[in-house]
Amino acid sequence: MTAAAQTAVTTLPTPSTPARRRRRGAGRDALAAWGLLTPNLLLFGVFLLLPLAATFWLSLYRSSGFGPREFVGTGNYRELAGDGTFWRSALNTAVYAGITVPVSLVLGLGVALAMNRPLRGRGFLRAVYYLPYVISGVVVAVAGRYVFNENVGIVNRLLRAVGLPGVAWQSEAVPAMTALVLISVWTKVGFAMVVYLAALQNVPKEYLEAASTDGANRWQQLRHIVVPLLRPTTVFLVVLGVIESFQVFDVVYVLTGGGPGNATEMLVTYAYAEGFDARRQGYAAAIGVLTYLVVLVLTALWWRRQKAQEAAQ
C-alpha cells in the first residue's frame, strides 16, 4: 500500500469545493438544506431550547415547583454569588474535571498505543477496556458504592486483609473525591482508548519508521511525533470530557451524596438538591443556567480553535 494511496483514502476532512461550481444551485440548496434540517431543528427547539428558556425564566423567580411563585429578578444570582456551597461545588466540579479528564486520556492513550500493534486476543482485551463505558450510570454508581463502601466494601476489606487500614471513602473529603475520580476514570478510559486507537490508525507508519531509522527511541517518537499528530483528537476528547464532567450526577449522588460536608458536591448535584430536596426551583434553575454558560464558553473557545485549524489546513 503506497503512502500516496493511503493519503488519498485518509479521512482528513476535505476542504469545501470551490464556491464557483455550487453557486448555480445555491438558492435551491439552501431551501433543501433548511427543509432537511427541519425535523432536527423542530425537536431541538421544542424539547431542548424551549425548556432551557423556561429554565432561564424560572431562575428569575422564587418557586417551590407548585403553588405561588414570586418574581425576584437577579435575586437568585445575587444569592449564589455569596453562597459558599455554590462556590465549593464549582471548585469541586473543576477539580473533578481537572483530574478525571487528563488521567483518563493519558491512560486511554497508553492503552491504545499498547494495543496498536498486533497482539493475540487484542479484540477481547479491547472489549474489556471498553466495557465499563457501556454500562449504565446507575449500575456504575451502585457498583462503585458497593465496592468502595467504607465499612463492608471489597476495597477496604482487601486492604484490611493485608494489614492496611481501610480508607474513609465516604466520610473524608480527599478519599471521597478520589473514589469518584477512580470510578469515573474506570468508565472513561475505554472510550478514550477507542478514539485514540482510531486516530492512531491515521498516523502513517512512515513517520514512525523514519524516526526509528534516525535513531530516535520510542519515547522520543512518542513525544515529538505521535502526540502532536494526535492533538486534534486530544482536544476533542478534552472538550467532550469537560462537558461530561461538568454534568456529572449519578455517581456522586449515589456514592457520596455530595458529602462529607460539601466535599464532593458538584454543580449539578447541588442544583438537584436545591431543586428537589430543598424545593427552591428558581435557585436550582439559576445554578443550572450558570453551569450551562460556563460550559458554553469553554466550548466556544474550542470552536474557535477548531476553525483556526481547519482554515490552516
Binding site: F44, L48, T55, I243, F246, V268, G275, A284, V289, Y292
Partner: peptide
C-alpha cells in the same frame, strides 16, 4: 445543546 445538564431542564 450538549451542555445542558439534564437535571436542570
Amino acid at each position: 445543546t450538549l451542555m445542558i445538564p439534564v437535571q436542570v431542564v
